[in-house]
């Protein structure tokens, strides 16, 4: 099984062209814990999340200053291949996005097959089953692995995407508002799954739902911008319980109690 790793973020600044999106973030993301990032829209939390596996580079003109150290290795060092980084830091997105041309089985196997790792069928079967079990989806789909992944319900699709992400055995799993497109029951199922996954992975989740952050995470970080046009900052990061019972910062207090949107 993969081993969860900690991530050390130091003096991270993020720019889109000349726009300064995120300013001076310092945090240690602890292994085997769920870290939730909360904050209002446009505060840079999703952008920051994407900088943890260099996904932000897909946007033209995005660049990063500072360092993100994954178990001793700065992922922004010049000799690091972003593609290799992403195989260690997996990601689950807001919209469930199983590959529509592939079956459930192929979706889970996609990460390995697309990287052209040759593998015997029984070995692949085992990985697919283990990943689907890990995503709490095996019992629901074991009899229809050859069906299209897009035929599943939204919540099942999202768990399929989680299975697909963990099939490549990353150390860190990033989730960008994974439940915002799901109904409450599916949401609770995903939250439960997140709690189980942290046994093996380091998890960072961006969410707009503060109850979700309070239910599912161990550590909560609050991002905010002082005013629109200014870069987003990490205002406070602490144990989730502290953030939701006795935050140190006034802005955090105002945000979690809903005194501003």
């Amino acid at each position: 099984m993969s081993s969860a790793k900690s991530v050390e973020v130091s003096d991270l600044d993020l720019y889109y062209g000349s726009f300064h999106a995120v300013q001076n973030v310092n945090m240690t993301i602890q292994p085997n814990k769920v870290t939730a990032l909360i904050g209002s829209s446009g505060c840079g939390k999703s952008t920051f999340l994407r900088s943890l596996n260099r996904m932000h580079e897909l946007v033209h003109g995005a660049r990063v200053e500072g360092s993100v150290i994954l178990e001793g290795q700065d992922i922004y060092a010049p000799d690091v291949d972003p593609v290799a980084v992403r195989s260690q830091v997996g990601m689950v997105f807001q919209q469930p996005n199983p590959f529509p041309t592939m079956s459930i089985y192929e979706n889970v196997a996609a990460g390995l097959r697309l990287n052209s790792r040759r593998m015997k069928k029984p070995a692949m079967d085992e990985i697919v089953e283990r990943s689907l079990r890990g995503a709490n989806l095996w019992e629901e789909v074991k009899n229809r692995l050859e069906r299209a992944g897009s035929g599943l319900s939204g919540g099942q699709q999202q768990r399929l995407c989680i299975a697909r992400a963990i099939a490549v055995e990353p150390e860190v799993l990033l989730m960008d508002e994974p439940c915002s497109a799901l109904d409450p029951v599916a949401t609770l199922a995903i939250e439960e799954l997140i709690r189980e996954l942290k046994v093996n992975y380091t998890i960072v989740i961006v969410t707009h739902n503060m109850q979700q952050a309070s239910r599912a995470s161990d550590i909560t970080g609050f991002f905010n911008l002082e005013e629109s046009g200014k870069p987003g900052r990490l205002v406070e990061i602490d144990e989730t319980e502290t953030i939701f019972s006795n935050p140190a910062n006034k802005a955090t207090e105002d945000y979690v109690t809903g005194r501003f949107g």
Binding site: L58, R86, G90, M91, F93, G111, L114, N115, R164
Partner: peptide, 8 residues
């Protein structure tokens, strides 16, 4: 993005 995130 899903594919890139799998390290493809």
């Amino acid at each position: 993005e899903a594919s890139y995130a799998l390290g493809v």
